[in-house]
């Protein structure tokens, strides 16, 4: 069979995947103002990579984003979230009390802003990494979708 019979899929995929990831970053960093946040952004990034894996093959996707990177990303995200809590503990507040992250007056909101941004990045890493790990676990066992399957 002609190896390049998915050429339309490949071309549109190459065009769409960067936009999907860019949209995920918008969702992530605009989450304070509009719907969205780390969870949705992480899922969207994972979907972008999974789309790449479906179009170009799991072997190729695993070369670009190795499974060890995805699972380390998940662990690092959870660790980042937890370390924000420990940081506020060290500064004399309760666990995850963002008001204690930076020294400021009672009217200041920098602690809240910084805390929310960092924990959202932690959520992004944890969710994107976990979803990719799950996908790789499944896809590693049946790497290709045959044309007859559709």
């Amino acid at each position: 069979m002609n190896p390049d019979h998915h050429v339309i899929l490949r071309v549109t995929g190459k065009f769409l995947i960067p936009i999907i990831v860019l949209f995920a970053l918008y969702v992530q960093f605009h989450g304070e103002l509009s719907p969205g946040g780390g969870f949705q952004a992480g899922v969207i990034i994972a979907v972008g990579v999974i789309l790449y894996a479906l179009i170009f093959g799991v072997v190729d996707a695993m070369k670009r984003i190795p499974p060890i990177f995805s699972r380390s990303l998940a662990a690092a995200g959870f660790f980042i979230y937890g370390s924000v809590g420990v940081w506020s503990l060290i500064n004399g507040g309760n666990f995850l009390d963002y008001d204690f992250l930076v020294a400021e007056g009672p009217e200041g909101h920098w602690g809240q802003h910084i805390g929310i941004i960092i924990i959202e990045i932690g959520v992004l890493f944890a969710v994107a990494g976990s979803m990719l790990t799950i996908f790789y676990s499944f896809a590693g066992r049946a790497p290709e979708i045959d044309d007859e399957d559709w």
Binding site: T133, S137, F138, A139, G140
Partner: peptide, 15 residues
Amino acid sequence: GVAVALLLGFGERSL
């Protein structure tokens, strides 16, 4: 994620 990976393997080896 960890539970699925523990049940099915991380993917590279089975791939």
